[in-house]
């Protein structure tokens, strides 16, 4: 089984969507892999893709190619993983804030979080404060991830934070802001519970905020 999972991981990193879906079929057919094992390989793949982007080996089209491979594989794996997925992680609401239409980073993060076992409600891009607040209330999400490509979106982030407070939801949801230009200082100014700049730091901050620090890697 481990050999199929290794091949699966390699196919995701290479962004080979057809091979990823075929290998996902093989994983389901064999029925031996645990959800933990599958998530570990998916997470490894996404982290490797993120790392290759950071070192300049991959660019955005290569990340999208891998994201598409993850998407095709998840379509096969989702029924197989469904029950354990909900038990393992938390419910996340995510979107790119108002005034920002960048969705590349967000989509990669959504795939990575799903792969890591979260139930993710993706609201898309240019999302209004009202939509974020309503979705958090409706789903009872424990995590709200606000994607913002540049720090010029600070007013939009502050608006969401104020609305969560005003609606009495701030105590029940941890908020993470994310984007390549985010920093601890920026996160402090906006008042979020954590920040992330890439796939790896997003998974880490989500694990920390959901009290799952001891989980795999």
């Amino acid at each position: 089984m481990e050999e199929i999972l290794e091949k699966f991981e390699t196919a995701l990193i290479a962004g080979n969507a057809d091979a990823s879906a075929d290998l996902a079929d093989a994983i389901v057919a064999a029925g031996q892999a645990t959800a933990d094992e599958i998530f570990a390989h998916l997470s490894n793949a996404m982290e490797e893709v993120g790392s290759r982007y950071q070192t300049g080996e991959y660019f955005i089209p290569e990340m999208l190619r891998s994201a598409e491979a993850v998407e095709k594989a998840m379509a096969v794996l989702e029924p197989y993983l469904f029950e354990s997925r909900h038990e393992q992680a938390g419910v996340v609401v995510m979107g790119t804030v108002r005034g920002d239409i960048h969705n590349i980073g967000k989509n990669i993060i959504v795939s990575a979080l799903r792969a890591a076992g979260y139930e993710v409600h993706d609201l898309g891009v240019n999302v209004s404060t009202e939509k974020f607040v309503n979705k958090v209330r409706e789903t009872g999400a424990g995590l709200l991830l606000l994607s913002a490509f540049t720090t010029s979106t600070k007013p939009a982030l502050l608006d969401v934070m104020a609305a969560l407070e005003a609606e009495g939801l701030r105590g029940s949801v941890k908020v993470v802001s994310g984007g390549a230009s985010h920093s601890e200082k920026f996160a402090r100014e906006v008042g979020v519970d954590g920040f992330a700049t890439d796939v790896k730091s997003t998974l880490a901050v989500c694990r920390r905020l959901t009290g799952r620090d001891g989980d795999r890697r």
Partner: peptide, 11 residues
């Protein structure tokens, strides 16, 4: 759309 456009590079 940037995402679809850049996904098309390989697709």
């Amino acid at each position: 759309g940037l995402i679809e456009f850049m996904t098309d590079f390989y697709r």
